[in-house]
């Protein structure tokens, strides 16, 4: 039941594992998440994430694999 009204702004956020998500722009950002900088209607945020989230492996997994 998340508001999907396209007039409402969301922001793009990511956590320490560089996993992306979205949040209503007026919400408090939960601990361990930071704003990525992109802000806009929900679908535009998701389209942006489709472009910037190029490796969906958690950061710790990426580092471990590259260490191998």
């Amino acid at each position: 039941m998340v508001d999907i009204d396209e007039k409402v702004d969301y922001i793009v956020v990511l956590n320490g594992e560089e996993q992306y998500s979205i949040l209503l722009a007026d919400r408090e950002i939960p601990a361990g998440w930071v704003a990525e900088g992109f802000r806009g209607p929900r679908q535009e945020c998701l389209d942006h994430i489709d472009v910037v989230w190029t490796d969906m492996r958690p950061l710790s997994v990426r580092r471990r694999m590259e260490g191998n």
């Binding site: 320490g16 998500s21 361990g32 929900r42 945020c45 998701l46 994430i49 489709d50 989230w53």
Partner: peptide, 18 residues
């Protein structure tokens, strides 16, 4: 990635950051 971000959201109730 976009579909993932749409369904897997920041958990405001967790004691574990991120």
């Amino acid at each position: 990635p976009g579909a993932t971000a749409d369904r897997f959201l920041p958990d405001p109730f967790s004691s574990e950051p991120g």
